[in-house]
C-alpha cells in the first residue's frame, strides 16, 4: 500500500465525504477516488459504502481504520523525529507510572530520547491506574506503565513490557537478610508495611495465602516506605525493579511468587509528539529482562 492512499483513507474516515476529503488532501476527486479503490483492491474489499446521501465505513473499513491510522502515525513520527532532531523542536514526554512501578526499567529509553532531543522536557507522574488513564484520555499524559490487572478501556493500546515480582525489603541486619529468599510463612511474625501506592503486593499475598498477616498501612510512596523500613517499623513488599540502597536490602519473595505484568499503554489513534513517539517505539522495540 502507498502512504498517500492510507492518508486519503484516514482523511475520508474523518470527513465521510469524498469531495471534502479530496480537498483537504489537495488532490482532484478522481485521483482521490482511484487511490481509495486501489487500497480497497489490496485490502480485499470495499472500505466505504458509497451511497448518495450516506458515506460510511464498511465492516472492513472499520476494522482496518485503527491499523492504518497507527501505520500512518508511525510513518509521520519516523520523519517528524528525524526533523525534530535536526531542528531542536521543543518537545515533551509525560509518562505515567502506576502504583509501585518505578522508572528504572525505562530510564535507558528516556536517556536515548534526550540524546536525540536534548531540549525535551521529561515529566513523570505516579498515581493510581484510573487517574493515569483519565490523564491519558484528556491528553495530560502521553503514555503510562500500568499493571495489567487494572480496568483499561478499549481505546487504550497496550504492549507487555516485563513481569515484575515482589521482593521483601528489610534492614541489612534483619535476621531474614541471611536467607536467599523470603516466604509468606517467614513474614507471619513480621509487620508488613502496606501502601496502595506501592503495588498492592501485601494484599495479594494475604488473599492468596489466607494467612492473617500483620499489616501496617501507610499511604506513602516507595521513598516513605523505605524510610519506615529503615526506622525498623517492619518489612515492605515492593517491586524487584526498584533500586534498594544500603542500609536496606531486598530478598526475592519466593513462596508464593507475586508476579505482575507491566504494560506500556497509550491512547489508540492519538498521534504523539516526537519525544513521546520515540519513547514508545524504543520501549516496544526491545525486550525487558
Amino acid at each position: 500500500m502507498e502512504l498517500s492512499q492510507v492518508r486519503y483513507f484516514a482523511t475520508l474516515c474523518k470527513t465521510l465525504n469524498f469531495t471534502r476529503a479530496a480537498e483537504q488532501c489537495n488532490v482532484t476527486q478522481p485521483a482521490f477516488t482511484r487511490a481509495i479503490q486501489r487500497l480497497e483492491d489490496e485490502l480485499g474489499g470495499p472500505l466505504i459504502f458509497r451511497e448518495r446521501n450516506l458515506t460510511q465505513l464498511t465492516e472492513l473499513g472499520r476494522a482496518m481504520r485503527p491499523h492504518l491510522e497507527a501505520m500512518l502515525d508511525a510513518a509521520d513520527a519516523a520523519t517528524a523525529l528525524a526533523a525534530a532532531k535536526r531542528q531542536h523542536t521543543p518537545s515533551s514526554l509525560k509518562i505515567g507510572l502506576g502504583p509501585g512501578i518505578g522508572a528504572a526499567a525505562v530510564a535507558d529509553a528516556v536517556k536515548e530520547v534526550l540524546k536525540a532531543l536534548p531540549d525535551a522536557k521529561i515529566h513523570f507522574e505516579e498515581s493510581g491506574p484510573a487517574a493515569l488513564i483519565e490523564a491519558m484520555l484528556t491528553d495530560m499524559l502521553d503514555c503510562a506503565l500500568l499493571a495489567d490487572d487494572c480496568d483499561m478501556p478499549d481505546r487504550l493500546n497496550r504492549w507487555p513490557l516485563y513481569t515484575d515480582r515482589a521482593v521483601a525489603v528489610l534492614p541489612a541486619d534483619h535476621q531474614l537478610a541471611a536467607r536467599n529468599a523470603v516466604t509468606a510463612r517467614d513474614l507471619l511474625e513480621e509487620t508488613i508495611i502496606v501502601s496502595d501506592r506501592c503495588g498492592g503486593f501485601a494484599a495479594q499475598l494475604a488473599s492468596i495465602t489466607g494467612f492473617s498477616l500483620r499489616l501496617q498501612s501507610c499511604n506513602g510512596a516507595a521513598a516513605q516506605m523505605l524510610d519506615l523500613v529503615a526506622a525498623g517499623l517492619g518489612v515492605a513488599l515492593l517491586s524487584d525493579r526498584l533500586r534498594i540502597a544500603a542500609p536496606l536490602t531486598s530478598r526475592i519473595f519466593g513462596e508464593p511468587e507475586l508476579p505482575r505484568r507491566i504494560m506500556l499503554t497509550a491512547v489508540a489513534g492519538r498521534p504523539l509528539n516526537p519525544a513521546a513517539a520515540s519513547f514508545v517505539k524504543l520501549c516496544r522495540a526491545r525486550a525487558f529482562h
Binding site: 523525529l81 522495540a285 526491545r286
Partner: peptide
C-alpha cells in the same frame, strides 16, 4: 495489485527516518 509500482523508485528520495535499533538506540 500493481504493488511494485508503489515502491519508492530509483531517483526518488527515500523517506527520512529515525528508528530504535536492536540495542535500544535511536538511529537516524
Amino acid at each position: 495489485h500493481g504493488f511494485l509500482e508503489q515502491v519508492v523508485r530509483e531517483g526518488a528520495m527515500f523517506p527520512d527516518f529515525m528508528l530504535p535499533s536492536a540495542e535500544g538506540r535511536l538511529v537516524s
